[in-house]
Design a protein around this nucleic acid. Structure first.
Length: 368
DNA sequence: TAGACGTGGTC
DNA sequence: TGACCAAGTCT
């Protein structure tokens, strides 16, 4: 009996000290080998300029490469370095970001650029903790910059890595559960190739994006399929587990396209709502009745519906927007409109960052 | 800390 | 077609 227990102990010790590191080493080797042979050729790859890595990482947050690529090119061209970006106005940055969504990324990008120029002598900090102090740089982006640009051994944890880890280890802890980040971060860091952290991090993400996809993963082509518990137990379709708790509310927006011969009215959107810092039309948000924002004009939405130009549905992550546009032509808008509105010549519209529905509306009417 | 924050692609 | 997702972060 004693011998049996001792054997068991030795076996598990062997597993822990010898076998596990060996398996991890194998996985690292296979992932890196695959990555170096199969990786897509992006402009920001193969160089370590922290500015470019940072910019690409911010743009690619919650965004597909195909969607972000043109924006990366525009930004690099307009702002070749962090000083150029810092010198720009927030409106210029938002204008360039127009259409990409999650506009806080653009505002934070600009804030961080100014911070780096003013407080870091225009060069990026190298340490994970220091990078995280930059506005808009969280755990993921700090790890990406630190590992790719400065070879620091910190594992990135993005949607791809969560998925790869959950499947590889058949881990059923929901990836958006409280405490999940810490849990998966430990797994990611234990798997990280500390000698090639940048390449390995990119390799994990590339694997998740190209092979270990959310639907129809290409397990037969996966370089680590022989280590994958989810594949072995046919669980790739249900892993990773994600709790769903998204509530979508519906809002009814009535936009007044008020103009005279040469100008139209815009308003800068403020904090605490969608599209902060972008410009839209005078907005009445209710179900109907009198237009309250311009009582002097004595407008009624029911009457205005005769001039209803367009009605659309625009879906955001958390809101469904039922949008109506009304056209109101006035002789001289300056005298009749009071409040926090600006009068913009049609010729200057190109300088103003606009939410997608506003941009589309103006395009439809050949104003843009 | 759970919820807010855009847009476009996919099945 | 609606639900889910895509290199997350902030408050």
């Amino acid at each position: 009996m004693q011998i049996y227990i001792i054997n068991l102990y030795i076996n598990s010790l062997f597993l822990l000290i010898v076998l596990k590191p060996l398996i991890i080493k194998n996985i690292q080797t296979e992932i890196l080998r695959w990555f170096r042979a199969e990786k897509r050729d992006f402009l920001w790859r193969g160089q370590k300029d922290a500015y470019k890595i940072w910019l690409s990482e911010i743009i690619l947050q919650q965004t597909r490469v195909a969607q972000g690529m043109p924006y990366y090119l525009k930004f690099i061209s307009a702002f070749p370095d962090v000083e150029a970006l810092a010198k720009a106005s927030e409106q210029e940055v938002l204008k360039l970001w127009q259409g990409l969504g999650y506009y806080s990324r653009a505002r934070n990008l600009h804030t961080a650029a100014k911070d780096i120029v003013e407080n870091y002598n225009a060069s990026f900090p190298e340490e994970f903790e220091e990078l995280k102090k930059l506005k808009g740089v969280g755990n993921y982006t700090a790890a990406a910059i630190a590992s790719i640009s400065y070879n620091k051994p910190v594992a990135v944890l993005d949607g791809n890595v969560y998925r790869v880890l959950s499947r590889l280890y058949e881990d059923e802890i929901p990836i958006n559960e409280n405490g999940a980040e810490k849990h998966y971060s430990i797994l990611a860091n234990s798997l990280l190739d500390k000698k090639n952290p940048g390449d390995f991090n990119e390799a994990m993400m590339e694997l998740g994006a190209m092979i270990c996809t959310p639907q129809n993963p290409k397990c037969e082509e996966c370089p680590i399929n022989r280590f994958c518990k989810a594949k072995e137990n046919n669980l790739t379709e249900i892993l990773p587990i994600k709790l769903k708790k998204l509530k979508v509310r519906t809002r009814y927006l009535h936009y007044l396209f008020i103009h005279d011969a040469k100008n139209l009215i815009l308003k800068k959107r403020e904090a605490g709502d969608i599209w902060q810092g972008l410009y839209d039309f005078p907005l009445e948000e209710n179900e109907g009745g009198k237009v309250k924002i311009f009582q002097s004009l004595d407008l009624d939405l029911t009457t205005l519906k005769k001039n209803n130009l367009k009605k659309i549905t625009h879906k955001l992550t958390h809101q469904t927007l039922e949008i109506s546009f009304y056209k109101i032509e006035l002789k001289s808008i300056r005298e009749q409109i009071k409040g926090d509105y600006i009068f913009v010549p049609f010729t200057k519209l190109k300088d103003y960052p606009l939410p997608k529905p506003i941009e589309n509306f103006l395009k439809d009417f050949a104003v843009l």
